[in-house]
Design a protein around this nucleic acid. Structure first.
Lengths: 108, 108
DNA sequence: CACAATACCTTGACAGGCGAAGTATTGTGA
DNA sequence: TCACAATACTTCGCCTGTCAAGGTATTGTG
C-alpha cells in the first residue's frame, strides 16, 4: 500500500533536509534514497522535489552548485546551510508534537 | 507552540470522523473539543471545518440534519455513516504507516 | 542505432486550508 | 436598555504545495 503524498504534505522539506544532513546530494539521488528507505512505499514526484528545492533555496536552508562530472549527466548538488540545520531540528520537534497531537485527537 | 495546519493537512477528515465515532455532533462543538483535547495547541479554522463537512458529506462518510433547538442558534448535526466508520479505520491504518515512514526518513 | 537510465527543468491545473466578511440568535454586564 | 460577547453557520476568493505532462541532454547497453 503506497502512501498518498497528501498525508506527507508539509513534511517534504524536513525529509529533504534529513537527507542532506550527512552529505551533499542531488535531486535524483535524494529521490532514490527516499524510495529505498521506505521500500518503495513513498516517493516524492520530480516536480514536487524540484519546486521544494527552489523554495528552500530561497528560504536559505539549502544552497546549490553544479557538480563537476566528467561523465554522466550534469548534477546540481545541494548543501544544507546552518539555518537549514536549525530548521531541521525545529521541524523534528514539530513532528513529535504533531504525532502526539493527532494521536490524542483520534483516541476514542 | 501552536501547530501549523500545513502539518495536519490531509488528516482533518480523520480527526473529524474520530469526533463523530461516539455520538453525533455539530461544527462548533467539534471545533471546541479539538481545542480542548489539544490544550489549545491546535484548532481547525471555521472555513476549513465547514468545507470539510461539505466534502465529506459528498463522499458519503457523514450525513447531516438540522437539530431541533428551542433556544440558542440552530445547529447542523452530523452523523458518521457505516462508510465513514470504514474510512476512519482505514485512515488510522494509514496514519500508523505515515508515522513509521516519516520517522524512517528523518533518522540520521 | 534505438532505447533505457540518469539527471534536470517548466508549465498549468487542482485541492485543501484559511482570512475576511456576513447572517442570526441568546445571554450578560454596565 | 442596550451594546457586546458568545454561539452557530455560511460563502468568497486567495495562497500554497503537489503533480501530470511535457521537455532537454548525456551515457550505457542490447
Amino acid at each position: 500500500m503506497a502512501i498518498s503524498s497528501d498525508l506527507i504534505r508539509g513534511h517534504t522539506d524536513m525529509i529533504i533536509l534529513a537527507n542532506l544532513m550527512k552529505e551533499d546530494s542531488y535531486g535524483y539521488r535524494i529521490n532514490r534514497e527516499i524510495q529505498e528507505k521506505t521500500n518503495n512505499m513513498f516517493e516524492l514526484k520530480e516536480a514536487t522535489l524540484y519546486s521544494a528545492f527552489r523554495r528552500m533555496e530561497k528560504e536559505g536552508v539549502i544552497r546549490s552548485y553544479w557538480g563537476v562530472e566528467d561523465l554522466g549527466a550534469r548534477r546540481r548538488y545541494y548543501t544544507i546551510t546552518p539555518e537549514g540545520r536549525a530548521a531541521f531540528a525545529q521541524y523534528c520537534k514539530e513532528w513529535d508534537q504533531v504525532k502526539t497531537t493527532i494521536d490524542q485527537l483520534i483516541t476514542l
